[in-house]
Design a protein around this nucleic acid. Structure first.
Lengths: 113, 113
DNA sequence: ATAACACTTGAACAATCGTTCAAGTGTGGC
DNA sequence: GCCACACTTGAACGATTGTTCAAGTGTTAT
């Protein structure tokens, strides 16, 4: 049932990269990992501050340390964030720079709704 | 527990857009909507072909029409896709162009894992 | 050694999502 | 009208996620 191509309905693909089924799986895993308001908030905060202790993130986002820790470990497990201990505190920062490109795009998308 | 800013650890935010809590919610909704291998596959196919009937997508992705229909209606509900009926067929196409920017970014991100 | 702080972990439960199936609507051909 | 095709819908149920709570580890200070 595909349309026949004529000059009027000709279509130019815009994606430069073709993702095979395995890549689609991986892409979905990464998207799911950030597809949560709290986790998006974390990424945004870390972009602003570069590095933050868990208690600071907890306070700024109004999320219980325990719940936040679960969210953070999700992101760390996928190597989207990294940690550094300094005394009693553990500082989180963005590890995967492509995350910011993603955030920028989703920002553009979300602002239209 | 925030770090004091000195020239050595100074940090430049990279995001140009600040998303408030409501926007973070919306962004998460959109991300969740695409965060599935089948739905990412649909977006990719539609970028390639411009417009496709459900039976074509079903065949190309190897997904049962019923399940595919559920996925498609998710995406349509959020106005990420649009439809057009022609005879017995219903053609789907990408409605929200920002989707492609998102796909491009997630492609870059996923290829590193 | 004890206590306080910062954070993590795991189990339990609730909430959401993905999939299947059976029944439904809309369209075109005979 | 009847049938076949293309697709949608809704209910059911399993699978995955999100959240809470109580108990745990590691660190510093006294």
């Amino acid at each position: 049932m595909e349309q026949t191509i004529t000059p009027e309905n000709a279509h130019q693909p815009q994606l430069t990269r073709w993702l095979d089924p395995l890549m689609l799986e991986r892409a979905a895993v990464i998207l799911k990992a950030v597809a949560h308001p709290a986790r998006l908030g974390v990424v945004q905060l870390l972009d602003q501050h570069g590095e933050l202790a868990v208690c600071d993130i907890s306070e700024k986002l109004g999320i219980e340390p325990s719940l936040l820790s679960h969210h953070l470990s999700n992101l760390k497990l996928l190597r989207l964030l990294r940690t550094r201990r300094e005394g009693k505190n553990i500082f989180y920062a963005i590890e995967e720079d492509h995350l910011l490109g993603l955030m920028e795009c989703i920002g553009n998308c979300a602002c239209k709704f």
